[in-house]
Design a protein around this nucleic acid. Sequence first.
RNA 1: UCCCCAGUAGCUCAGUUGGUUAGAGCGGUGGACUGUUAAUCCAUGUGUCGUUGGUUCGAAUCCAACCUGGGGAGCCA
Length: 466
Amino acid sequence: MTIAVIKDVLGGNYAVGDTVTVRGWVRTRRDSKAGISFINVHDGSCFDAVQAVVPNNLPNYSAEVVKLTTGCSVIISGQVAESAGQGQAFELQADNVEVVGWVEDPDTYPMAPKRHSMEYLREFAHLRARTNITGAVTRVRHCLAQAVHRFFHERGFYWISTPIITTSDAEGAGELFRVSTLDLMNLPLTDEGRVNFKEDFFGKEAFLTVSGQLNVETYACALSNVYTFGPTFRAENSNTSRHLAEFWMIEPEVAFADLEDVAKLAEEMLKYVFKAVLAERADDMAFFAERIDKEAMNRLQHVIDNDFVHMDYTDAVEILKNCGKTFNYPVEWGTDLQSEHERYLAEEHVGAPVILKNYPRDIKAFYMRQNSDGKTVAAMDVLAPGIGEIIGGSAREERLDLLDRRLEEMQLPKEEYSWYRDLRRYGTVPHAGFGLGFERLVAYVTGVQNIRDVIPFPRSPNNAEF
RNA sequence: UCCCCAGUAGCUCAGUUGGUUAGAGCGGUGGACUGUUAAUCCAUGUGUCGUUGGUUCGAAUCCAACCUGGGGAGCCA
């Protein structure tokens, strides 16, 4: 018995006449009074389902085959044949249909063979993987993840597994999820009446990481070219279509590199993974172009074919001031750009991803490298049309005195960063890196509007089902 | 967290300017027809009208609070 994945059957990897067995789930069944039934079966290996042509002389035809409904699991054996119908080159002439699992009540099976809203599908995160769209998103997501790893591997980067549990608030900003084994009903207290974390699992306060950057910098300052690719957690009460409480982030860090180097790296990486998706997931991308966003494929090709536009923050402010458009928020040097400003720059002024660089020092994180003008830091954001900031990066301040001054200005506890400061005390080097929100990348590529639909089990305020 | 919008059948929605028996399409089911393909045609069922409270002779409809979802904003990736 040759077990075949549907991708290989449809792709012509078997000869006509070969007997193969496919296993999967029924998408639709159509009966013909000519004495056959058509059963479309999907197994996740590709976008399309294979059509099994089932003759009515099979022993279980009337008892089982004609009772198959959407969602039933089956094992079907038969001969690969050129299809007499339209819509597929190959099909399966079935000579055995085994029903593995029935759908107990087709009327209440949530994944009915019809269009569902994304909001509805989200309520069935355990079943939505069976739909066309979630299947396609899942394959594209995988393709992107593989391409990211391949891209860095080919350039000599090492994948560093930075910790999920941390005991320092990496950027002194983000809201953190606490990790604790203390009994909430009976907390140990200090003499001052505070919670005594010395009795907690780690002997101190612990949290889920908001970024692997500070940790991965340590490895960049030894292995030169490194990156993280892992889950990240933010306890921010963000209720938007582009925020998750648990998301995946890719953070390369490069020793002896400056901002220009990592801006180039970001551009090359995006082009590399977009090429991979167009080459490897043409079936799924065609579906997104047809059903989600007409421009899904053109957008990627356009990014691949054109150089990214680089723009200084200072120049961007001038462009925004002189563009003749009235914004809800005023544009002024020294303040962070609002969504509407970023959107104008990426969507209208440039019409493609744009790299904004050299932001005012006072609105950026303590670790960003200060420019010689005394006003700005070597930071960049990659803004993508439709989704906004997709990448944020910077050169890191490698000069200890300047770093310490920033820690003091921002009133951050120096002791907490002793190991980070050590990197500047022992063989410091200029280095730079960036962070890419993986789900934002998947959303950008697929055209799916809500980030909650490009991760299998989204976590957001008030929602951690499944 | 703030602003706006929505919650009616399994799903997507219409409707009800407060008044008897609540509507369509899709999906499901039954049948017809057919190498069909989200087929087509015919038939068919289904509702604490989000929750709680208030106003009223009477509330699914008006009001309030709450819950849930969506859009936008902030925070950011």
